[in-house]
């Protein structure tokens, strides 16, 4: 992965979230406070501005840190804290260089999911974005271990992520605002899982076409 690809993943993620903003807000209205799309779109606009600014870092670790800080400062609530601190953690796994090998990029993705879990205390099946993040990263690791190229693996993960997000619908929320609804949260797809699937689509769109 090059630092140019890394930045373009975030530009693409911002585009996708903006396109799906109303849908994400609608999903969040059912089991949360109806602002997930707006909140994330605002944060990703700041991310794009920071990554594109004069004097912005050109190496992977620095760009990843910029993303984390931008999300922490602009996305309120749990999403901002979870995404932001996860990206700051991932920055520690990336080199201060313009490019890294696939194994390093996969290790950074592992840092993201581990940081999100330790910060948010969510387990698999709690109806949170961990329900997409954890199996997605596991599939990424397995695919690369089996000899798939990074771009091929990213496409496979992006496809699986959509299925995983849809599979949150029957779950009863045990973490996050939706948990106050108890059994009434079943029947609604988790908005954080849908935006996580959009992130993986952004990764696939970017690395498969460059």
């Amino acid at each position: 992965m090059t630092s140019d690809q890394f930045r373009r993943i975030w530009f693409r993620f911002g585009e996708l979230v903006t396109e799906h903003r109303d849908e994400l807000n609608r999903l969040d209205a059912a089991i949360g406070d109806a602002d997930h799309g707006t909140n994330l779109a605002r944060g990703l606009a700041k991310v794009a501005a920071d990554l594109g600014a004069d004097g912005a870092s050109t190496h992977l670790a620095g760009s990843c840190r910029q993303v984390g800080m931008a999300l922490l400062s602009t996305v309120g609530g749990a999403s901002g804290a979870l995404w932001g601190s996860a990206l700051l953690r991932a920055a520690g796994a990336l080199p201060e260089a313009e490019a890294c090998d696939t194994a390093t990029a996969v290790a950074a993705a592992r840092q993201v999911v581990d940081a999100m879990q330790s910060r948010g205390h969510a387990e698999l099946g709690d109806k949170t974005m961990i329900d997409v993040w954890r199996p997605a990263v596991a599939l990424l690791e397995a695919s690369v271990a089996e000899g798939m190229s990074g771009p091929q693996a990213a496409v496979a993960v992006a496809e699986r992520a959509v299925t995983l997000a849809d599979a949150t619908a029957p779950l009863v929320a045990r973490r996050g605002r939706a948990s106050y609804l108890g059994a009434r949260s079943a029947g609604h797809v988790d908005p954080g899982s849908v935006s996580t699937a959009l992130f993986w689509r952004a990764v696939a769109d970017t690395v498969a076409h460059s």
């Binding site: 901002g80 804290a81 700051l88 996050g176 605002r177």
Partner: peptide
């Protein structure tokens, strides 16, 4: 107040 605030508080300690 709510869970999201706790996540932000804990992240702030680290960051």
């Amino acid at each position: 107040d709510l869970g999201g605030a706790l996540v932000a508080l804990e992240a702030a300690v680290e960051v």
